[in-house]
Structures are given as structure tokens and as C-alpha cells.
Write a protein that binds this DNA or RNA. Structure first.
Length: 813
DNA sequence: GACCTGCTGCGGACTG
């Protein structure tokens, strides 16, 4: 059995291996580590898989007699993908007559299967980052990995920008420590920082590395769905069902459609309205998002795979995963927020190499139409976002150290040398590492009085967990994904439908009806984190919303939007029907105020019956705007005592006050000349409050708070309260706590996007400021104003209201 | 006059 046989097999399959695949095999056989960059549907799995197989055949030509144990590990970020990899790898073994066993190890793996694996590991183990760490927490784990020669990390672009990526780096550092010859291969879709992605994955070792790029062009065609009359299209809003009548014919003429929405509630709304307008589609369309029960989701995936569904309305839950070859059309509803995401979604259709991926873009408000043109330009210019890797994530490090202590225990010196070879922990000093050791042995400076934090003990210099209880709890809470605890929705029969948030259900009573999982449901009772429901015959129910993550518009896409406005102003509208369509709106913006070129920075000052508004439009995504708005507000309040309420969206922000604002004077202060951005932020933003919220995740990953046993989730407010308690204790007694510092750093890096803010300030300082005083709010301003009124029940506004009431009271008396 | 925001991912095994 040689390479020849494999090539012959390919021939039999009528499949000619691509150059990049052969390149990969060669590099793997020559002992390289590396990163493969290939689009989905190009055969990237086989590129790495046959490398593994060929090496195995070379090492053990007589494979039928030898049982060398675990040869390779294949990491996938989601379980659904594991099944697909298992299918294609084991099928090719059967076809080729090679004795090479393949098995999955994930949360789905039964105890029996695990026991079997323990006796005899397969040659290829397909697993997740979390399950790999669980293996590292087993007694005698080095034995499992002793013959391991290759680790493949699939979809590395998905992991690199998250703490799961950090977890991966740590596991690899250990495996590399056990076996210095270990080869590591990543597979990644195109991202802006591929070279960095490779370096982060492979760590700092001497071994030779290679980047392999499949030069396969993915043709993406974007078609924006327009309203007939732009004048009737709303200026704000994010649901977009106005255009539903135009989406229906697309569904009918397609074989199978994926409709991506940005939020779970939006998916529910679209599903509901689609059924209402087109009852014939009942049974042919389905819903898929992260809060639906796993069984429902699997059913949808299977039927989509088999081509039995005409359309599925989904969220990012179907961004990744199984190959849905039946899908020939993709629709994106609302802003795609970023180029990479949009490309990923577009790629879910037209799966064969070289095939055209067509994606329809359905804008949900007028201004958003421009994003269709911006996206087309980004793809033309090949502009794509980077995924920034985490650094110095001490929460993950602390968890990892306990993991190793749960197994056979570890020697600190050995592990320190390994972790500083990772990208994430390269700058960790000996002292910082000692801090981590202390933290896991006695809780650090402030928790020494509580023995529950004496998790790890030292025996002959080896750090070990001796308590079975600590070990069990640790195994249960491994991983870096901290979910929001939610209530389970169930029928009386016990059938699960999915989960919704406490805050939503608390607004309803027994007997009320809500729409969820594509059904109208009546509440029978709520107890023990469960909502028991029955089907309702009522037509209308409230639709739940979930407090998920908020994704800002990417800076690449923002830049393209500014560029497209320039194009419009320069009359270069030929390639983009979007710009033609926006003519009326842009003319109104120019008439009432001004349409800024990319060399201009527009500020609008408007008086309405609500008060005095200042609008600014950096077009830099809502996170940056949040920070900028706070800084501008503070600077203005230095010249006149004034309070503002602040609102923002992805295009700009608003400061509103009931007092007149001396905007000229404020501008003369050089509002945007920032010398020390970090200091400005500290003075303007309530960083402590933001960090406190951020700390919940860190406390959970670091094992400070226990999330509860499976299926017995703790209430969100308990978790929140516990982590806040630790936060306050550390603030008071342990200011040097590395986890505390990490919370502050994460707020600056991810919540306020400080680097991006810095670039935005640099740009604004190059621009000329255009101040306009429109009589009425402009098309740019309107969506931001609406955003503010919508959130009028936040604490901040209650405070405002109280103040107003107080003022009123003073006036009356 | 325009309004139904807020994603995804994972998950015990030891001892008798």
C-alpha cells in the first residue's frame, strides 16, 4: 500500500488531487508543520488526511499486524463536523483496504465507548479542544500520546480569536513537550492575518514550518434586494420583513435556501411571517438557532443535508458545519457586519470547487443598502478581517494548570518552559507563573482563609489534585465557553424545545402565549429553571429576545462604506445599483446637512423638542463609538456643567442634553486631539463596571465560581453575584491579582476596541471637520435617535428621569 | 413619520 494506491483510488473516484493537496502530503512526510489555507469545498480535509495516512503506511507497511495506537488527532471546533470527518476518513480506509481505525471523542461519546478507547485508542482520534483537555486530565495520559505524530486543527480561523484558541495552544504545548517531533497542521479559511495564525498555532519551536495556500478562487456574486420605492423604506429598524415578499419568489425558484439573520428573535420573526404569508411552505421550511433544542437542530441539519427542506432560517448556528450540498441559494438579512462572515455564509452554497457562490443581501433599513456595495468592493479588493489572538489569558492558564494537576500532576519548571513557547503566554514572567501556582494552591493573597481554594497540593515538588471532589468538579467545568444560564422550555410530555432567558419569561404570566421554536406556546407553569408549555391556538404571542453578544461592524467593512460614499460623490455609481438606489436618501442628507467625503468628519447639531443633540459619524462600529461618545461628553462637560444621554449605532453616535451645547467652543478645544487614550478612557468610561461584568467569564474559566452540575444550572443572578463578590474582594485586598487585571485589559481590547479607536482618532485628526446645524434630524441621525428611545428603560435613563422629576418638583415648590 | 436587535462554540472517570 503506497502513495500509488492512493492516487489510483482518487482516479477511481474520478477525482484528481489538487496541487495544494499533494503539496501538503509532501510537506507532512518531510516532517514539516504548517498551515493550509483553502476555501470550503476544495477538499481540504483530504489534504491533511492523506498526509496522515501516507505517513502511517510508510512507518508501518505491515499495518495489519501492528497496533501502534494513537497516531494522529484531528481537532474540530464543533461536534457536528466530527461526524463528517469520521465518515470521510473511515470510508477512505475501507475503500483502500487499509486497517486504520478512526473514532470520535466528544461530549456525545458514551461511557462505554470511552472505556473501549481507554483499552485501545484508535489510530485517528477526532475530538474537540475541550475533550482533548479532558484527556490531559486523565491518569497516565502521556502513555496515550506516546506514538502520536500529527495533530490537525481544522477550522483554525474559528478558534484563533477566542479563548478556545488559547486552550488549543496550551494542549499543543503539552503534546509537543511530550513529543518534540510532533507535527502540527492547521486548516484555515482566509483571514487577514494568516501568517500570524500559523505562528500562533505552531508556537515557538525550531521545527520547519510551511504555509500552503490552495490557489482556488472563490467567485462570489452579491445581489441586493431592493424595495421598489426607497421613499417608503424605513430609515431605521433591523428586522427587514418589509422585503419578505421579494424573498418568497427566490425561495420558490431555488432548490434549497439558507436565510441567515443576525439574531435569534429575528429568525423566529422571519419564520413566523414566512409561514403566514406563504402557508404552502409549511413542513418545507425550518428554523435553526442556538437556543433551540439539540434534537430539533439535528433534525433540521439532517433534512437539509438530504435536500428535504426548501428553506432554513438560521443564525450563525449554521455558519460552520456539515456540507449542505443541496443548498444552492444563500440570503443574508441585515448587515453582515464583516467581510469574512459574509464570505463564509456565501460559501455555504455552490460547494464544488470553482462553483459560483451567489448570495442575496436583504437590507433592513435605508442606509444599510450601502453595505451591499461595500461588501462587493471588499471582495473585489480582497480586503478581509483579521482574527486577533488572545494574549495573557491567565484564566485559561489557571484552568490548564489544575487540569494537569488532576491527572498525574506536573513539575512547574517543565510546564513553565512549555507555556512560554506559546504565543499567548510568551511574555509571562516567572513571578507571574508563581502567582498562578499560588493561586491554585491556596487561592492567592486574598482567599487564603477559604480552603475550597486549596485545590492543588505539592508532593515532592509535583503539583497534584488529591481530592476526588475537586477533580470531579474541575472536569465538569473545563472549557472556556461560559454560557448564560437559561430556562428550559418543555412540553408536558417532557419533550424539550430549547431555552429562553429569565428576563423574558419574568415579564409573562401563567396562561400567556409566546412564540418560540416556530410555535405558539402557552405557559402552564414555571419552576426549577423550567418553563412547561402546551401548544396554543392563539395567533399572536410575544417573541422572546436573547441578550447575546453584540457584534460591531468590522473596521474593514466600515472603511468600504466610507469608500462607497466617496464613489457616490464622485459619480462613480455604475457598478453598484445600491448607490443609484440611495440617491434620494443621500440627496436629502446633503440638503438637510451634508454628505461627508472620506476626507471630512461630519458633526450635526440639532434642536428638537427632546432637547439638544450632537451627532458625530466616525463610521467605526458601535464599540468604538461607545468609548468615543463618553470621551467627547466628558470633554464638553469640562467647559460647561452638563449631562448627556448617549446613544450610538455602527455609523455614529449622539449626545443629547436638555441644555444648549456650545458646540463651537467645544470644537475649539480640539476634541479629537488625544494624547493618552488609555487615560482618557479611564476618566470617561466606567471601566470598573464594565470589567466587573467581564469578570464573570474569567471567574468561571479560572474555576472561582462553579457553574453547577449538568442539567442543574445555577441561576444567572447567583453566578453574577458570586463573581462580583470575588471582583470586589480582589479590588479591595489584592489589586495585583492577575485575573482582575485581565478583566480590565479585556475591556480595553474587546469591549472598547482601543486599538481601533486609536486608528479612528488618527483618521479624524486628518479629516476636516464639517459642522452643520440641520433644522430636522437627518437620515444619518434618525436611526441613532430611534436606538436611544428604544432603550429608554435602562438604569441610566431611569436616573435621568428621576433627575427630571426632581427638577420638576423644585420648579413647582 | 419612519422602531419588534444583539451570534456561536464544549462538557467526569475513578475505584471496587
Amino acid at each position: 500500500m503506497t502513495e500509488k494506491n492512493i492516487l489510483a483510488w482518487f482516479k477511481k473516484q474520478k477525482w484528481k488531487p489538487h496541487v495544494f493537496q499533494m503539496e501538503t502530503w509532501k510537506a507532512m512526510l518531510a516532517g514539516y508543520s504548517g498551515l493550509i489555507n483553502a476555501p470550503t469545498g476544495s477538499g481540504k480535509t483530504y489534504s491533511a488526511w492523506f498526509g496522515i495516512l501516507l505517513e502511517y503506511l510508510q512507518k508501518y507497511p505491515d499495518q495489519k499486524k501492528t497496533k501502534p495506537g494513537l497516531q494522529a488527532i484531528w481537532i474540530t471546533p464543533i461536534r457536528a463536523l466530527a461526524k463528517e470527518i469520521e465518515y470521510s476518513t473511515s470510508r477512505s480506509c475501507t475503500d483502500l483496504g487499509i486497517s486504520f481505525s478512526v473514532a470520535i471523542r466528544s461530549g456525545d461519546t458514551t461511557a462505554g465507548q470511552k472505556a473501549k478507547q481507554k483499552k485501545q485508542m484508535p489510530e485517528l482520534l477526532i475530538t474537540t479542544p475541550e475533550s482533548l483537555h479532558l484527556l490531559l486530565a486523565q491518569k497516565g495520559y502521556p502513555d496515550i500520546f506516546k506514538n502520536l505524530s500529527t495533530v490537525v486543527v481544522d477550522e483554525w480561523h474559528e478558534l484563533i480569536g477566542s479563548k478556545r484558541g488559547v486552550q488549543m495552544e496550551l494542549a499543543l504545548s503539552r503534546l509537543k513537550g511530550l513529543n518534540p517531533d510532533l507535527k502540527i497542521w492547521g486548516i484555515s479559511a482566509t483571514i487577514g492575518n494568516l501568517e500570524e495564525a500559523k505562528d500562533v498555532l505552531l508556537g515557538k519551536y525550531e521545527s520547519p514550518t510551511k504555509m500552503i495556500r490552495a490557489k482556488i478562487v472563490k467567485n462570489v456574486q452579491i445581489e441586493t434586494i431592493f424595495p421598489d420605492v426607497i421613499e417608503n423604506f424605513p430609515w431605521s429598524g433591523f428586522i427587514g420583513t418589509q422585503l419578505l415578499p421579494k424573498v418568497i419568489p427566490i425561495i420558490h425558484k431555488s432548490q434549497s435556501v439558507l436565510i441567515f439573520t443576525n439574531t435569534r428573535s429575528q429568525a423566529e420573526i422571519w419564520y413566523q411571517q414566512l409561514l403566514e404569508t406563504e402557508p404552502d411552505l409549511a413542513g418545507l421550511i425550518a428554523l435553526h438557532h442556538g437556543s433551540l433544542d439539540q434534537n430539533t437542530r439535528t433534525w433540521v441539519e439532517d433534512n437539509l443535508h438530504d435536500g428535504k427542506l426548501k428553506a432554513v432560517i438560521c443564525t450563525s448556528s449554521l455558519d460552520l458545519g456539515v456540507d449542505f450540498s443541496a443548498v444552492d441559494t444563500v440570503i443574508q438579512v441585515g448587515s453582515p457586519k464583516g467581510v469574512a462572515r459574509f464570505m463564509q455564509r456565501a460559501g455555504r452554497s455552490g460547494h464544488s470547487p470553482g462553483a459560483l457562490s451567489k448570495i442575496y443581501f436583504v437590507p433592513t433599513n435605508s442606509l444599510e443598502i450601502i453595505e451591499g456595495a461595500a461588501m462587493r468592493e471588499a471582495i473585489k479588493q480582497n480586503v478581509i478581517e483579521s482574527r486577533v489572538p488572545f494574549i495573557r489569558s491567565f484564566d485559561v492558564l489557571v484552568q490548564y494548570l489544575v487540569t494537569l494537576a488532576v491527572s498525574d500532576g506536573f513539575e512547574p519548571d517543565v510546564i513553565y518552559k512549555e507555556i512560554i513557547r506559546t504565543h499567548c503566554f510568551a511574555t509571562v514572567t516567572k513571578d507571574e507563573f508563581l502567582w498562578c501556582l499560588q493561586f491554585i494552591t491556596n487561592g492567592g493573597n486574598s482567599l487564603q482563609a477559604y480552603d475550597e481554594f486549596y485545590k492543588v497540593e505539592i508532593e515532592d515538588g509535583i503539583y497534584k489534585v488529591l481530592s476526588r471532589g475537586v477533580a470531579m468538579r474541575h472536569r465538569l467545568s473545563m472549557g472556556t465557553i461560559v454560557g448564560d444560564s437559561a430556562l428550559q422550555v418543555k412540553f408536558l410530555s417532557g419533550k424539550r424545545l430549547g431555552s429562553i432567558e429569565e428576563s423574558f419569561i419574568s415579564k409573562l404570566n401563567i396562561g400567556d402565549v409566546f412564540w418560540f421554536s416556530g410555535k405558539n406556546l402557552e405557559i402552564i407553569k414555571v419552576h426549577h429553571m423550567e418553563v412547561v408549555v402546551k401548544k396554543s391556538t392563539l395567533k399572536n404571542g410575544k417573541i422572546p429576545s436573547w441578550q447575546g453578544g453584540r457584534m460591531p461592524l468590522s473596521s474593514q467593512l466600515s472603511a468600504m462604506i466610507r469608500y462607497k460614499i466617496d464613489n457616490y460623490l464622485a459619480n462613480k455609481v455604475n457598478d453598484d445599483p445600491e448607490l443609484n438606489k440611495l440617491k434620494g436618501l443621500f440627496e436629502l442628507q446633503a440638503k438637510r446637512s451634508h454628505l461627508p467625503t472620506s476626507k471630512e468628519f461630519l458633526i450635526e447639531y440639532v434642536q428638537t423638542k427632546e432637547g439638544y443633540h450632537v451627532f458625530m459619524y466616525p463610521f467605526e462600529g458601535r464599540f468604538v463609538h461607545e468609548g468615543m461618545a463618553a470621551i467627547v461628553a466628558r470633554k464638553i462637560s469640562e467647559i460647561q456643567p452638563i449631562t448627556f444621554s448617549i446613544a450610538m449605532n455602527d455609523y455614529g453616535f449622539e449626545l443629547l442634553s436638555d441644555q444648549e451645547i456650545n458646540i463651537e467652543e467645544a470644537l475649539s478645544l480640539d476634541l479629537f486631539n488625544i494624547k493618552n487614550l488609555e487615560a482618557e478612557i479611564q476618566m470617561s468610561v466606567n471601566a470598573t463596571e464594565m470589567s466587573k461584568r467581564r469578570f464573570r467569564e474569567i471567574a468561571s474559566i479560572a474555576g472561582l465560581v462553579f457553574q453547577g452540575y449538568p442539567n442543574k444550572a445555577m441561576k444567572t443572578r447567583h453566578l453574577q453575584a458570586n463573581s462580583q463578590l470575588f471582583f470586589s474582594v480582589f479590588e479591595k485586598y489584592d489589586a495585583e491579582n492577575l485575573l482582575l487585571k485581565q478583566a480590565y485589559d479585556e475591556v480595553l481590547d474587546f469591549q472598547l476596541e482601543i486599538e481601533r479607536m486609536r486608528m479612528a482618532y488618527d483618521r479624524i485628526n486628518q479629516q476636516s471637520i464639517i459642522l452643520k446645524r440641520p433644522i430636522k434630524p437627518t437620515p444619518f441621525a434618525f436611526p441613532i435617535m430611534v436606538d436611544r428611545t428604544r432603550s429608554s428603560y435602562t438604569n441610566e435613563n431611569i436616573q435621568d428621569r428621576l433627575l427630571k422629576m426632581k427638577a420638576q418638583f423644585e420648579k413647582d415648590s
